[in-house]
Design a protein around this nucleic acid. Structure first.
Lengths: 107, 107
DNA sequence: TGTATATATGTTAATATATTCATATAAGGA
DNA sequence: TCCTTATATGAATATATTAACATATATACA
């Protein structure tokens, strides 16, 4: 045991609330569109239309997905006039995303 | 930049194949049943029926989900008579799972 | 107040997913 | 070979998800 260390992690039984949060968060990362959005927001803060234009996704789709990510506190925004600038809001999850990307690139 | 380092990770544009692999892998982790199975397999190698009994999930459901995880090379098995013993097969993904569990426990 | 722009929301349709039941396969032993 | 046990598979159903369209809301400004 302890192959990966233990900080109340896999070596312990999981309560249903933890399982729910973990699966919800992974589900958020389990969609190509959301990965592209988060990858963009990793590089820089963006308005909704910037995201839509850059990634060639419809504005309403971007807005729906941003709401999804916002509910999980993975992104946040600030307002400037009528424009909302979104940025990532969970460094740990972004680190996990990067690890998985590295993992995919190396295998 | 470089807040999280860079090993061809988030600071670079992603090709569609990488996005696909990453999203597929996260999708595998984005389901409560699969998280419970992987969490169990982290602790020890298990037969299909052991998994089903321990987690109170039907045998066919476990088998379907194991096939899913097997296709992504997240689990493997060895045969002993009629019994198949499954175990995890991707230490890096297991590490990522544990990180997310820790993250959920601490927030 | 009216108009333009940026974003959010409601609804719908297509597709994907998860689980269940029933059954098939595969291995071992009598 | 027949029977038992362990696992896999196919089909069906219920549910979830995604993206699109149309429209609503909100802010700024003339």
């Amino acid at each position: 045991m302890e192959e990966f260390g233990n900080e109340n992690g896999l070596t312990q039984d999981l309560d249903s609330e933890t399982i729910f949060i973990v699966s919800q968060t992974f589900k958020a990362l389990g969609d190509p569109t959301r990965i592209r959005i988060l990858n963009l927001l990793f590089k820089k803060e963006c308005s909704v239309n910037e995201i839509a234009d850059t990634l060639d996704i419809r504005q309403s789709t971007v807005s729906h997905q941003l709401r999804f990510l916002k509910n999980l506190r993975l992104v946040k925004y600030r307002r400037e006039g009528t424009t909302l600038y979104y940025s990532h809001d969970d460094a740990h999850v972004m680190l996990i995303l990067q690890q998985m990307i590295d993992h995919a690139c190396h295998s």
